[in-house]
Every structure is written in C-alpha cells, then in structure tokens.
Nucleic acid binder design. Sequence first.
RNA 1: GGGAGCAUAGCUCAGUUGGUUAGAGCACCUGCUUUACACGCAGGGGGUCACAGGUUCGAGUCCUGUUGUUCCCACCA
Length: 897
Amino acid sequence: MPQDFNLGADALPKQYSPKDAESRIYQMWLDGGYFHARVNPDKKPFCIVIPPPNVTGQLHLGHAFDETLQDVLTRFKRMQGFEALWLPGTDHAGIATQAKVEEQLRSEGTSRHELGREKFLERVWAWKEKYGSKIVEQIKKLGASCDWERERFTMDEGCSHAVREVFVNLYEKGLIYKGSRIINLCPKCATALSDAEVDHIEEDGHFWHLRYPVYGSGGVSSDNATDYANAPGAEFVTVATTRPETMLGDSAVAVNPEDERYTHLVGKTLVLPLTNRKIPVIADEYVDREFGTGCVKITPAHDPNDFEVGKRHSLPEILILTPTAVVTGGTRYDGLPRFDARKQILADLEAQGLLIKTEEHRHAVGHCSRCNETVEPMVSEQWFVKMEPLAAKSLDCVDNGGIKFVPERFVKTFDNWMNSARDWCISRQLWWGHRIPAWYCEKCGKITVSREDPTECSHCGSHEIKQDEDVLDTWFSSALWPFSTLGWPEKTPELEYFYPTSVLVTGYDILFFWVARMIFSGLEQMGERPFETVLFHGLIRDEQGRKMSKSLGNGVDPLEVIDEYGADALRFNIITGNSPGNDMRYFPARCEAMRNFANKIWNASRFVLLNLTVSDVTLPPESELRAEDKWILTKLHDTIAEVLTNFDVLELGIAANSLYDFIWTGFCDWYIELVKPRLMSEDAAEKQSCERVLLYVLTHLLKALHPFMPFITEYVWQQLPAVDGVIMTQEYPEADKIPRFPEDARRFDAVRDAISAIRTRRAEMNVPQKMQPSLLIETNSPEDFTAGIAQIKKLAGISEITVSSTAPSETAGYAVIATAAAKLYLPLAELVDLAEERARLSREIAAAEKNLAGVEGKLSNEQFMSKAPDSVVQKERDRLAELTTLIENLKSALSRT
RNA sequence: GGGAGCAUAGCUCAGUUGGUUAGAGCACCUGCUUUACACGCAGGGGGUCACAGGUUCGAGUCCUGUUGUUCCCACCA
C-alpha cells in the first residue's frame, strides 16, 4: 500500500478535496496494473467494449454518462471475482475527422486535392496522433478502469485486417455487391451516405405545378414545348413537384391506371419543356390519384420511387447533377448549382407559360446528419451490403431473447428497423478510412476483390488493375468492434475467452448505426451474438430539457465539473435518479448535492478513524452486539441485497440510491449518533465492540459504493488500518455473509420511534436544547427501552429516564406522547398547554382510528382474507395490533390530560 | 402515415413482479457553536399520482379510451 495516502488520523482535514486525491489515486491504480485483464480459466470472464468515441473528439456529458455506466458495471463485476475486461479504443470517424483536417488545410490556403491522397492521409494521421490521446486522457479523469494495454483504434492494423476479411468474406458470399442504386448524396461532403445518415426534417417548401404539352395536340406538330403554350387546342398534363430542377432528368409522366381522367393519355408522348425531349405517359399503380394532380413526373435518376417506376417501365436514367449538386447533362443549365438552377428553371417555365401554380407545401427533406446540408437522392455506382439475409438472422436472435435489450421496449424499435432496412450503402467518396479492397481491370473491366493486394486481375491476368478510390463507411469497421478488438480474424485466446462480450452500454440514438450492425456482423462472422445484453441509456439534456449542442452553447464540460466537484460527484449525479433508456436533465445543483454526499462519507470515515483503537474488521461475537448494532447490520444486509438485485437488472440508479440512503440516513444520521455514548464510555470492551461494528459497516459500505464512487472509497480505504491492497480488488459484499437480526431490529424501532417522537414534540413546543427534562416511559416491553437509555438521553436531550409498566401518579405539567410501544411523559411544566395537548391527542386519535378502520375493513373482507398472500395478511394483522395499542395509549393519555 | 416514450410535491425525477400512511434531491419554513461533517444536525409544510372508464379483495403500478407532450422511423411526387 502506498504510504503517502495514509495521512494519519490527526491529519484528516474536515473537507474532502477530490482534486488532490483523484489523479494520484488513478495513477496508483495504473501503476498497480489493476485494470489489466488476462485470459484466466479460473475465473469467469466479463467483458465490455467501449463505444469508441471519435478519435479527435472532445469529452462531453454524453460520454461521461456512457462511460460511467460501463465503469460501474466493470468495477462491480471485477470485485465480484470476474475477470473483468473493459476494452477501450477510438473510432477514426471518417467524415468528421476528414472534415476537420480539410478545414485546417483551407485555413492554410490549400486543399486535399492539391495535396494528393498520400500526403493528405499523412496529415490526418499526424492529426490523429496529436489529438487522439486527448479524449483518452479525459476518459481517465472520470476514473474509468479501462484496460489501457488493450486500447484499440478502428484503423489500426488488427481492425483493418478484420475489415478486409469481412469485406472479402461478404463479397464472396454475395452479401456485398457493387451496383447502381439510388443513394443519398451530400453535396457538401461530396460523398454517398447510408439511409441512417440522413435526417428527415420538416420544412416549408413549395409545390410547383408544371404543364407538359402532349405531343401533337391542338394541331401543333412542333418539337418545341413553347409552341404549345398558347395554342388554343393544345393538351397538357400538369405535374406537381417540390424539386422542379429534376425535370431536366424526367423520362416519363405516370398516372394511376385506374384514373379515368387520364386513361386516354396513357401511351401518348409529351414534350418535356426546356429540353424538348419526348417522354411517354405511363400507367403505374404507384401513383396516388388523390395526391397533387394525379400526374407524377418520373425522374428515375433522382428519386427512389421514380427509380423503381423506371425499372418497371425500362425508362432511361438521366443523371442531371454532379456529386456536388451542380447541373450537368448537356442543357443550358449546366454548371449551375442546384438551387440556382431551380430559380432559373422556374423563371423560364413561367416565362413560357408552363408554370401555372405555386403552392406552399410543408414536407420532410433529407439532411446530412453530419453537416446538415440538404441531401440529393441520385443514382450512383456504389457498394452495398445486402441486408435481407443478415436482418433475418438478427431478428431471429433478438426476438428469441438471444440478446437481451434493457429496457426491453427497444426490441420493437430494432424489429421495425430491421424489417424495413434497405441495402446498406457502404462506399464513401472520402480518403480517410478503410479503402475498399476492390480492383478494376483496365482490360476486361472485371472486379478483383482480395484479402491480399492483388498484382493482377483474377479474371484475365492483366496487370493493369486499379484499386477502387472509395473508402468504407466508418460504421463498417465499428460493426466489427466486439470481435476485431479481441484479435479476430486470428483465433486468439482473448477472443475465445471474452467473446461474446457481456454487456454493451450505449445510447439509444445509435441503435441503428451501431448496435444493429454489430449484431448482424457478429452473427455472420462469429456465428454468435456479439454481446449477451445491451443496456441502452438516454441523452443528457440541459436544465431546460434541450439537447446539448454547440450551436446553443449549452454544453457542459465534464472536465470543469470534475474540477469543481470531483469525478465521484459527477458520476453519482449521472447514475442516481436515472433509469435505463430514459433521457435525463443535467442539474449542476445535483453535483453539489453529490459532492456533499462524498464529503459526508469522508467525515463519517473521519469520525470512525478518530475514535478507532482497534484494527479488527471482523464483527465481535453476537453476545457483544447491542440492539443498535443488530439494527444497523440488518439494515446493511438488506441494503446490500437490494443493491445486488438491482445490479442484476441493470437498475444502477436504484442501487446507487439505496446506498445513498443507507449511508446518509442509516449509518450517519442514526447509527453513528446512537453509538456515541458507547464510544465515550469508560468501559473498554463496550467501546471496542462498538468500534468493530463501526469498522465492519464502514468497510462494507465503502466496498459496496466503490463501483459508483471509486475515488473517495479508495482514498478512505487507504486511511484504514490493517487493510490490504486497494479497494478496487476487494470482494464485493455479499448479503448472505452479513448477519441479520430482523426481530431485534424491529424491537429497536421502539427506541428510534421514541427519539423521533420526543424530538418532534420538543420542536413543536419550542423546548430549547439546553432544557433537558427527565422522561418517564410507560411500556409493556421495558427491556426494549432499557437497552436504549443512553441513546435516548443523548439523541432526544433527556437528563434522566425511568422505565415503568405503570403510569406516573401525577401527570399535571407533563407532555404525554404516545407511540405504538409506549407512553412517554415529559415534565415540561409551564411549557405545557393542557388545551393544546388535548386537541393534539384528539387529532392523533382521529387519524389513527381512520387508519384502523381501513385495516379492519381489509381484515374483515373475506375476499381479501382468502385471496391475498399470507405475508400481506400478516402485515395487516401487525398493523392492526400496532394501531390498537397506539390508540389505547393515546386515549389513556388523553384521559389523564 | 407507422412506432415508442412520458404525464407523480414549487422544480427535476425514483417508485423493480399490483400489497401498509406514495419517496429522494433541490427549493421553502422553524430551531440548533449537539466534542465527524454548516458541503452539517433536528423538526416541518407541500401530492384528488393528467382525465374517464375497466379488471382485481386491493391500482401510481395492469387493460381500454381521451387529452397534452417528447422522440424515432417513413419514398406521397
């Protein structure tokens, strides 16, 4: 044990200052190698892989939440004797990281294209080296017990190897394919996105009604749409669109086959304005007759539905936008950015009399989840993962309980998504990421996909091959995280031992991005689920319930909070009062409360240490245990049992709350106060037995609390005499090993009730602290009270106590208090107002009788008696007895007043 | 359009499979140099558990509906 932590009892300051302690303690843990987990056949494994934060990211409260939960679980399991591995690492975060470096290049007046791919990647790696360790250092400040020796990065050699293997494997199985499909393009990021990376946001837009002339109608035989505009008999179809610029790529107009208004037009030819291209009118079920004009312009290259329609009718796909959303395709609008083109096209159509109506229209528009730019759906050659077979396996696993979701309701969310997931677009037109291991042959045009970089085309043997320029979606590599980090595709002992991992802890916001993809990847590659349980948590919001965001400036820096209140306070704030899957608001005031709690523990420990003359952490024999000892031990037992139960169901907030309540109310407010008379007594044996109980309870609560508040518990532990090593490797308390005396505990409540009742009465009657009246206790169970004489005196401010089975002969000038077990007589002379006493007693009688009536009602109800479980009936019987004596006591007190 | 959550004290939230008198923190009121702690101690006020039905011996808890609110998914041009 490092000596410098033990300050000696004399030197313990009144206030705990986490700032001094935390970094030194963390270093001590690191030096001791306590976070390192190894393959250990003698122990059961427990493993959590961290949701890897972005390598260039900054720690925010969301991370703090996520990582605190993981650390609590890991520390708990470690103390329970599991070989607990919390495997840390970071994510290369393709778009985000590349964007940051590109921004830096811009400020230097250059660009990635000017630099070239190789030089650019060097820059990103340099950036990663510089900033990648920052977030790791920040996570350490939280007290995270990660096995840093196993830290991974999604683009390190091993992960890259795993990515390569999975890609080739899926390609060989036909589950990865290259194809021309409608994808979402972010013009700003200039890359394809997956569906999951598009946010649909309601926006006010317009619905423009355009007229397309029917070729040859009205006796006009012109190829030019404008010639029809003013021709008297010319016929038109009117289409409504929210993106008029896409009309440049129209290849048909569709109507519903059942729509009589238009049946005569089906098969006719239209002249597409501005381009004067001829397009057909087709009939397709897809068209909703009720919506818009009932005529839909079909742009197969720029709309997912139109794409499908186009396929059905073999329509040409006419691409009219570049990857940066500039018009292309050989019209006079070429070169115009999409929204400029929109304006120009509308103006031109209007001038030609072909724009006939503009409506306000609210609709959902896709935005890039990274940069918020409006995305452009367009047809493009990309790589896809075929979802159907993977989804089927995943649904089978999750729906049959193969992976447990906490809370369970997310299974439904998962199912909904999996059931409707379209193929996953995995190629990105970026440079930072895992480059797609596909080579194109210049000669035969075929694709070579290979585990090793090929030197020749696998089809024709040509050496003229070129690797695909694109990289993979970042989530492709994170999807492999639970096994790639354990060494897969090598058959490592770690993989064998720790896979499947135990719990995955993450926010529900990345269920689709990450959790779902890990599930199908694990099932597909490992043939086994990647984790047994997923614990979902919510978002941390600000005091007003808003999302924390840069633009609002309402973000809270966890490091500042740690600096001010300590990591333990932040952790406890986050853990308590939150249940799985729910969002929570962050209140700085709660951190203060938890800081106070840490200080409470500190001072309780100080109290114990300052009084300590023994170093025995075992309990004295039962014969030496006093009533209050049995009471606190029983409470400790029950608390530990409750904590363990809640750990089992991952209700960490409830577990933490039970400990808070036990420590503050049970241990500090009651037990320590109750024990003070004994500690001050001359009787050495009495004093020592009491010290041993104090020390026993203190060590237990410290251990029980350690997963939640690792720093202060460790710090105090280091002050205790005769303890070995560090607290974080101690055995977690087991309820069964803590003795329990429920009957004694219940009887001791007579003493606590008396103390509380006297205190309340004193407050009501404004009896000053200095005034220490004597007390006469009239009771049928005097032995329950004689055990607590000294305690009642000290805690209720009483000078002398007489315990008797009979009432005093003269009760004038006495305040009489009735409890369930006794009548308490306090000679308070002139302080006593008889009329007030009578009124109060009458009120109490009325209240008690009302309760009694309820209890009697139940007990006389045959249905209740026959159907309610015995324990519930017994509770009611006890309650009946208690209320009956209470009422007797109150009535006899009243009759004497 | 589909799905999910939430509605409990002035505020923020707990309340595990239905079972005494519904809890905590903060805020509020009263008193306290009680030899661990004022980051404290003791006492106190404050809730028709959104509303309406239903199931049950018993409902904050389960069911149905209503209202309000939040979120997720979705290709109505």
